[in-house]
Computed example of a mutant assay.
Amino acid sequence: MTPFKVQVPQDAIDDLKARLDRVRWPDREIVGDKSQGVQLGTARRLIDHWQHRHDWRRFEERINRYPQFHMEIDGLEIHFLHVRSPHAGALPVILTHGWPGSVIEFLDVIGPLTDPVAHGGNAADAFDVVIPSIPGYGFSQRPTDAEWNAERTARAWGALMQRLGCEHWVAQGGDWGSLITHRLAQLRPDGLAAAHVNLPLVMPTVDPTDPTQEERRALASMAKFQSDGGAYANLQGTRPQTLGYGLADSPVAQAAWMFEKIDAWSGNDGSDEPALGFDTILDDISLYWFTNTGTSSARYYWEVFRTGFGGYSAGRIDLPMGATIFPGEFYRAPRVWAEQNWANLFYWNEADRGGHFAAWEQPKIFVEEVRSAFRQFR
């Protein structure tokens, strides 16, 4: 286990600024809404903010406050944050991000989870927090061979927790982190007691002949995603290398490709201003840019899709599973579908606000959900 700090060379930052100086813009969209993608006016404001106001060094200082490490697992250097609680008996939890997110999603929840007393909570709810970067994302090494899919990542997470000395632990995730957490629950590595997700990947085991309103809503959201919002996944899942030339060479291409989904999935109410704000979004985009992981992160879709994962159903799970449904999530599975797939559903709640990036958007709600879900497993 090797200590790690984020330290981007100044010449890499200068190169980014120089590339942003030379951007060639496309024509303006020919519609008055976002139906053709990121609007030109929004893209110009995003890039102007990146070039003139965003401060990467400020972000480095922020993330470097937390202990970070590299550990070789299954031939790959895995980056992770490991923040221990000051309270005795803290429950270890591994938190897993997705795309186009990163470990950045969880920075605002580290303090309340590890030191609840300092944030108005109870010491009995304390966690030791482990936050790894998915292989090929951010500061984890980029795979050079195939098969780094969700199941292999889950096996690596199990090895990571074992090497950290965690004998009794829990797991949480959203987006790809949700699929990885589902796979962890199916693999049941030593010490894993329960899991919680904010994107339950469940489908009815039998087609509902008379679907409820909730089931109709879920089916409609799947159809909308496949027809209108899923082109990015199809491209990353089939031709990530071709896409990668633009992502690796053009920071504007990288920024627009990621911004569209961050903006759409983070509870934006139609405003021109992103719900998460330009600065925090650009922290995330910059992380991908400086590590050149646009292509390798896209390739994760290819890895997962070629193993037959359908996108909505991860299969049966016997380990205790819990979930929180956030209203802005693009796919909200009904509880009855989870009951059909999860033999031990121990927690289910619907939050009153928040979207796809639960911890990033609504850290207070996320923290309370994690505390409530895992309280019985201490």
Rank of each mutant, 00 (worst) to 15 (best):
7 Q>R: 15
10 Q>M: 04
10 Q>H: 11
12 A>N: 04
14 D>C: 04
15 D>S: 06
29 E>W: 14
30 I>F: 06
33 D>A: 02
33 D>G: 05
36 Q>H: 06
38 V>N: 09
44 R>Y: 04
46 L>R: 04
55 D>W: 02
65 R>F: 13
70 H>K: 07
75 G>L: 12
77 E>W: 01
77 E>R: 14
89 G>D: 08
100 P>W: 13
100 P>S: 06
101 G>L: 02
102 S>D: 15
103 V>A: 13
109 V>Q: 02
109 V>M: 01
116 P>N: 14
118 A>Q: 15
121 G>N: 09
130 V>Q: 08
143 P>G: 13
150 A>V: 08
154 A>S: 12
157 W>T: 05
159 A>N: 14
162 Q>L: 11
172 Q>T: 03
179 L>F: 15
181 T>I: 05
184 L>R: 13
189 P>A: 05
189 P>D: 07
191 G>P: 07
198 N>Y: 07
199 L>T: 01
206 V>T: 08
207 D>M: 15
213 Q>E: 13
218 A>V: 04
218 A>E: 01
224 K>I: 12
235 L>Q: 09
240 P>T: 07
243 L>D: 13
247 L>W: 10
254 Q>M: 11
260 E>G: 12
262 I>D: 01
262 I>Y: 02
265 W>T: 00
265 W>Q: 03
273 E>N: 00
274 P>V: 04
277 G>N: 08
277 G>P: 15
286 S>I: 03
296 S>G: 12
301 Y>M: 12
303 E>C: 03
311 G>I: 04
313 S>R: 10
314 A>K: 06
321 M>Q: 05
322 G>E: 00
325 I>Y: 05
327 P>M: 12
331 Y>C: 03
331 Y>A: 08
335 R>C: 00
341 N>P: 00
342 W>H: 08
343 A>M: 11
346 F>S: 00
351 A>H: 04
353 R>L: 03
354 G>I: 11
365 I>S: 07
365 I>D: 08
370 V>Y: 09
372 S>T: 05
378 R>F: 02
378 R>P: 12
